[in-house]
Protein backbone atom coordinates (compact mmCIF):
# COMPACT_ATOMS: atom_id res chain seq x y z
CA UNK A 1 0.00 0.00 0.00
CA UNK A 2 2.73 2.46 1.05
CA UNK A 3 6.44 1.87 0.68
CA UNK A 4 9.44 4.07 1.47
CA UNK A 5 12.79 2.93 0.04
CA UNK A 6 15.79 4.85 1.41
CA UNK A 7 13.94 8.16 1.24
CA UNK A 8 15.74 11.40 2.05
CA UNK A 9 14.36 14.91 1.80
CA UNK A 10 16.15 18.24 2.18
CA UNK A 11 14.80 21.72 2.94
CA UNK A 12 17.57 23.99 1.75
CA UNK A 13 20.72 22.37 3.08
CA UNK A 14 18.96 20.80 6.07
CA UNK A 15 18.19 17.09 5.87
CA UNK A 16 14.63 16.75 7.15
CA UNK A 17 14.13 13.05 6.31
CA UNK A 18 17.19 10.84 6.49
CA UNK A 19 17.26 7.53 4.62
CA UNK A 20 13.87 6.27 5.79
CA UNK A 21 12.58 2.85 4.70
CA UNK A 22 9.37 1.10 5.76
CA UNK A 23 6.31 -0.53 4.32
CA UNK A 24 2.67 -0.32 5.35
CA UNK A 25 0.34 -3.07 4.17
CA UNK A 26 -3.33 -2.86 3.29
CA UNK A 27 -5.48 -2.65 6.43
CA UNK A 28 -2.66 -1.62 8.79
CA UNK A 29 -3.21 1.05 11.43
CA UNK A 30 0.17 2.70 12.00
CA UNK A 31 1.00 5.63 14.24
CA UNK A 32 3.81 8.01 13.36
CA UNK A 33 5.45 9.28 16.53
CA UNK A 34 8.23 11.72 17.35
CA UNK A 35 9.02 15.04 18.94
CA UNK A 36 8.16 18.37 17.27
CA UNK A 37 10.47 18.92 14.30
CA UNK A 38 11.25 15.21 13.92
CA UNK A 39 9.91 15.26 10.35
CA UNK A 40 6.49 13.64 10.84
CA UNK A 41 4.48 16.15 8.80
CA UNK A 42 7.14 16.17 6.07
CA UNK A 43 6.99 12.39 5.91
CA UNK A 44 3.20 12.56 5.58
CA UNK A 45 3.51 15.04 2.70
CA UNK A 46 5.97 12.69 1.01
CA UNK A 47 3.36 9.91 1.20
CA UNK A 48 0.90 11.57 -1.18
CA UNK A 49 3.33 13.44 -3.42
CA UNK A 50 2.84 16.91 -1.96
CA UNK A 51 6.62 16.72 -1.51
CA UNK A 52 8.90 14.71 -3.77
CA UNK A 53 11.86 12.81 -2.28
CA UNK A 54 15.35 14.09 -3.08
CA UNK A 55 16.63 10.54 -3.01
CA UNK A 56 14.98 7.15 -2.63
CA UNK A 57 11.51 6.19 -3.73
CA UNK A 58 7.99 6.49 -2.34
CA UNK A 59 5.35 4.16 -3.77
CA UNK A 60 1.73 4.57 -2.76
CA UNK A 61 -1.13 2.41 -4.13
CA UNK A 62 1.20 1.36 -6.93
CA UNK A 63 2.15 4.93 -7.94
CA UNK A 64 5.66 6.34 -7.70
CA UNK A 65 5.05 9.77 -6.12
CA UNK A 66 8.01 11.29 -8.01
CA UNK A 67 6.28 10.81 -11.35
CA UNK A 68 2.55 10.73 -10.45
CA UNK A 69 0.55 13.94 -10.04
CA UNK A 70 -0.56 14.64 -6.47
CA UNK A 71 -4.13 15.24 -7.63
CA UNK A 72 -4.13 11.77 -9.21
CA UNK A 73 -2.71 10.16 -6.06
CA UNK A 74 -5.49 11.92 -4.10
CA UNK A 75 -8.04 9.55 -5.68
CA UNK A 76 -6.68 6.77 -3.45
CA UNK A 77 -5.03 8.68 -0.62
CA UNK A 78 -6.98 10.88 1.78
CA UNK A 79 -5.09 13.45 3.85
CA UNK A 80 -6.55 15.14 6.89
CA UNK A 81 -4.52 18.22 7.81
CA UNK A 82 -4.03 19.43 11.36
CA UNK A 83 -5.82 22.69 10.52
CA UNK A 84 -9.23 21.89 8.99
CA UNK A 85 -9.74 25.51 7.89
CA UNK A 86 -7.26 25.05 5.06
CA UNK A 87 -9.43 22.31 3.59
CA UNK A 88 -12.81 24.02 3.89
CA UNK A 89 -13.83 26.37 1.09
CA UNK A 90 -17.60 26.04 0.61
CA UNK A 91 -20.44 27.78 2.42
CA UNK A 92 -22.43 24.69 3.42
CA UNK A 93 -21.39 21.31 4.78
CA UNK A 94 -23.16 19.53 1.90
CA UNK A 95 -21.30 21.59 -0.75
CA UNK A 96 -18.05 20.99 1.11
CA UNK A 97 -18.48 17.22 0.93
CA UNK A 98 -19.54 17.46 -2.72
CA UNK A 99 -16.51 19.65 -3.56
CA UNK A 100 -14.06 16.79 -3.03
CA UNK A 101 -16.33 14.27 -4.77
CA UNK A 102 -16.64 16.43 -7.90
CA UNK A 103 -12.93 15.92 -8.50
CA UNK A 104 -13.00 12.15 -8.34
CA UNK A 105 -16.49 11.15 -9.54
CA UNK A 106 -18.69 11.99 -12.48
CA UNK A 107 -21.89 10.18 -11.48
CA UNK A 108 -24.16 12.75 -9.80
CA UNK A 109 -26.37 10.14 -8.12
CA UNK A 110 -23.30 8.49 -6.60
CA UNK A 111 -22.09 11.87 -5.35
CA UNK A 112 -25.46 12.56 -3.70
CA UNK A 113 -25.55 9.11 -2.15
CA UNK A 114 -22.02 9.40 -0.70
CA UNK A 115 -22.77 12.88 0.63
CA UNK A 116 -25.87 11.63 2.43
CA UNK A 117 -23.87 8.69 3.79
CA UNK A 118 -21.25 11.05 5.24
CA UNK A 119 -23.82 13.45 6.70
CA UNK A 120 -25.42 10.50 8.46
CA UNK A 121 -22.13 8.95 9.58
CA UNK A 122 -20.97 12.19 11.23
CA UNK A 123 -24.48 13.38 12.25
CA UNK A 124 -23.91 16.64 10.39
CA UNK A 125 -26.49 19.17 9.19
CA UNK A 126 -25.78 19.65 5.49
CA UNK A 127 -27.18 23.19 5.46
CA UNK A 128 -24.84 24.58 8.11
CA UNK A 129 -21.97 26.92 7.29
CA UNK A 130 -18.71 25.10 8.16
CA UNK A 131 -17.00 28.36 9.15
CA UNK A 132 -19.64 28.96 11.84
CA UNK A 133 -18.97 25.59 13.47
CA UNK A 134 -16.69 24.70 16.38
CA UNK A 135 -13.10 23.51 15.77
CA UNK A 136 -14.08 19.89 16.39
CA UNK A 137 -17.09 20.10 14.07
CA UNK A 138 -14.96 21.68 11.32
CA UNK A 139 -12.47 18.83 11.76
CA UNK A 140 -15.36 16.38 11.31
CA UNK A 141 -16.53 18.17 8.14
CA UNK A 142 -12.99 18.04 6.73
CA UNK A 143 -12.77 14.32 7.55
CA UNK A 144 -16.23 13.66 6.09
CA UNK A 145 -15.27 15.37 2.83
CA UNK A 146 -12.18 13.15 2.60
CA UNK A 147 -13.91 9.91 3.53
CA UNK A 148 -16.63 10.58 0.95
CA UNK A 149 -13.97 9.89 -1.70
CA UNK A 150 -13.44 6.43 -0.14
CA UNK A 151 -9.63 6.52 0.02
CA UNK A 152 -7.68 3.28 0.33
CA UNK A 153 -5.06 4.99 2.51
CA UNK A 154 -5.93 7.66 5.04
CA UNK A 155 -3.20 9.93 6.38
CA UNK A 156 -4.15 11.83 9.51
CA UNK A 157 -1.93 14.66 10.75
CA UNK A 158 -2.79 15.02 14.44
CA UNK A 159 -6.53 14.43 13.97
CA UNK A 160 -7.43 14.88 17.63
CA UNK A 161 -5.53 18.10 18.38
CA UNK A 162 -7.84 20.76 19.79
CA UNK A 163 -10.79 18.40 20.16
CA UNK A 164 -12.70 17.71 23.37
CA UNK A 165 -13.08 14.16 24.66
CA UNK A 166 -16.46 13.54 22.99
CA UNK A 167 -15.27 14.85 19.59
CA UNK A 168 -12.08 12.82 19.90
CA UNK A 169 -14.06 9.64 20.62
CA UNK A 170 -16.39 10.31 17.66
CA UNK A 171 -13.57 10.87 15.19
CA UNK A 172 -11.42 7.99 16.40
CA UNK A 173 -14.47 5.68 16.48
CA UNK A 174 -15.13 6.40 12.80
CA UNK A 175 -11.46 5.99 11.88
CA UNK A 176 -11.27 2.73 13.79
CA UNK A 177 -14.40 1.42 12.04
CA UNK A 178 -12.97 2.33 8.63
CA UNK A 179 -9.77 0.51 9.49
CA UNK A 180 -11.77 -2.57 10.46
CA UNK A 181 -13.41 -2.37 7.03
CA UNK A 182 -10.01 -2.40 5.32
CA UNK A 183 -8.86 1.22 5.03
CA UNK A 184 -5.16 1.63 5.77
CA UNK A 185 -4.40 4.34 8.33
CA UNK A 186 -1.23 6.32 8.98
CA UNK A 187 -1.79 8.67 11.89
CA UNK A 188 0.52 11.32 13.35
CA UNK A 189 -0.27 11.89 17.00
CA UNK A 190 1.26 13.19 20.20
CA UNK A 191 -1.57 11.67 22.21
CA UNK A 192 -0.14 8.37 23.41
CA UNK A 193 -3.48 7.35 24.92
CA UNK A 194 -5.08 7.56 21.47
CA UNK A 195 -2.12 5.76 19.91
CA UNK A 196 -2.28 3.04 22.55
CA UNK A 197 -6.03 2.59 22.12
CA UNK A 198 -6.21 2.49 18.32
CA UNK A 199 -2.90 1.89 16.53
CA UNK A 200 -1.31 -1.55 16.15
CA UNK A 201 2.08 -0.44 14.95
CA UNK A 202 4.25 2.58 15.65
CA UNK A 203 6.91 4.25 13.52
CA UNK A 204 9.13 6.48 15.63
CA UNK A 205 11.01 9.35 14.01
CA UNK A 206 13.81 11.27 15.64
CA UNK A 207 15.82 13.93 13.84
CA UNK A 208 14.45 12.74 10.50
CA UNK A 209 15.57 9.12 11.08
CA UNK A 210 13.28 6.17 11.65
CA UNK A 211 14.51 4.93 15.05
CA UNK A 212 11.84 2.28 15.61
CA UNK A 213 9.19 0.37 13.70
CA UNK A 214 7.43 -2.10 15.97
CA UNK A 215 4.06 -2.98 17.54
CA UNK A 216 2.71 -0.17 19.74
CA UNK A 217 2.74 -2.45 22.80
CA UNK A 218 6.47 -2.95 22.45
CA UNK A 219 7.24 0.72 21.76
CA UNK A 220 5.20 1.85 24.77
CA UNK A 221 7.40 -0.21 27.06
CA UNK A 222 10.74 0.65 25.52
CA UNK A 223 12.01 3.49 27.67
CA UNK A 224 15.05 4.06 25.45
CA UNK A 225 13.04 4.57 22.27
CA UNK A 226 10.44 6.69 24.02
CA UNK A 227 13.18 8.84 25.47
CA UNK A 228 14.94 9.24 22.12
CA UNK A 229 11.73 10.65 20.65
CA UNK A 230 10.79 12.71 23.74
CA UNK A 231 7.66 10.63 24.28
CA UNK A 232 5.88 9.56 27.41
CA UNK A 233 4.06 6.22 27.42
CA UNK A 234 0.29 6.06 27.98
CA UNK A 235 -0.68 5.97 31.66
CA UNK A 236 -1.51 2.25 31.98
CA UNK A 237 1.72 0.99 30.32
CA UNK A 238 3.65 3.54 32.41
CA UNK A 239 2.03 2.26 35.60
CA UNK A 240 2.62 -1.34 34.50
CA UNK A 241 6.32 -0.63 33.91
CA UNK A 242 6.67 0.87 37.39
CA UNK A 243 4.95 -2.15 38.98
CA UNK A 244 7.57 -4.57 37.72
CA UNK A 245 7.73 -7.91 35.92
CA UNK A 246 4.34 -9.22 37.06
CA UNK A 247 2.73 -6.48 34.96
CA UNK A 248 4.92 -6.72 31.88
CA UNK A 249 2.00 -7.88 29.68
CA UNK A 250 -0.38 -5.20 30.91
CA UNK A 251 -1.36 -2.62 28.32
CA UNK A 252 -5.02 -1.69 28.78
CA UNK A 253 -7.30 -0.94 31.75
CA UNK A 254 -8.87 -4.40 31.36
CA UNK A 255 -5.42 -6.06 31.36
CA UNK A 256 -4.55 -4.11 34.51
CA UNK A 257 -7.78 -5.07 36.33
CA UNK A 258 -7.28 -8.73 35.46
CA UNK A 259 -3.63 -8.70 36.53
CA UNK A 260 -4.37 -6.90 39.83
CA UNK A 261 -7.08 -9.45 40.58
CA UNK A 262 -4.73 -12.28 39.76
CA UNK A 263 -1.92 -10.88 41.94
CA UNK A 264 -4.33 -10.27 44.85
CA UNK A 265 -5.71 -13.81 44.54
CA UNK A 266 -2.17 -15.21 44.61
CA UNK A 267 -1.37 -13.17 47.75
CA UNK A 268 -4.54 -14.43 49.48
CA UNK A 269 -3.58 -18.00 48.66
CA UNK A 270 -0.02 -17.59 49.77
CA UNK A 271 0.79 -18.97 53.27
CA UNK A 272 1.37 -16.32 55.92
Amino acid sequence: MLRFDGVSFYRGSEKIINDVSFEIDRGDFAALLGENGAGKSTLCRLCNGLLKPDSGRVTVCGNDTSSAKTSAIARNVGFLFQNPDRQLCQNTVRKEILFGLEHVLSDRAEMESRTEEMLEMFSLDGKRDPFGMSRGERQQVALASILACKPQLLILDEPTTGLDYRECVTIMGIISRLNAEGTTILMVSHDMEVVGDFAERALVLSGGRLVADAPVRRIMKDAQILDSASLLPAQIPALAMSLGDNFSDVFTVDDMAAQVESVCAKKERAPL
Binding site: L50, T70, S71, A74, R75, V77, F79, R86, C89, H103
Partner: peptide, 19 residues
Protein backbone atom coordinates in the same frame (compact mmCIF):
# COMPACT_ATOMS: atom_id res chain seq x y z
CA UNK B 1 2.22 30.95 3.55
CA UNK B 2 -1.45 30.50 4.39
CA UNK B 3 -2.37 30.50 0.69
CA UNK B 4 0.35 27.94 -0.02
CA UNK B 5 -1.01 25.78 2.82
CA UNK B 6 -4.57 26.07 1.49
CA UNK B 7 -3.46 25.18 -2.04
CA UNK B 8 -1.55 22.20 -0.62
CA UNK B 9 -4.62 21.02 1.33
CA UNK B 10 -6.80 21.31 -1.77
CA UNK B 11 -4.26 19.46 -3.93
CA UNK B 12 -4.38 16.65 -1.38
CA UNK B 13 -8.17 16.57 -1.95
CA UNK B 14 -7.71 16.04 -5.66
CA UNK B 15 -7.91 19.63 -6.92
CA UNK B 16 -5.53 19.87 -9.87
CA UNK B 17 -3.26 22.69 -8.76
CA UNK B 18 -0.43 20.70 -10.25
CA UNK B 19 -1.92 21.29 -13.71
Amino acid sequence: EEMAGIAEAQTARGVEFDT
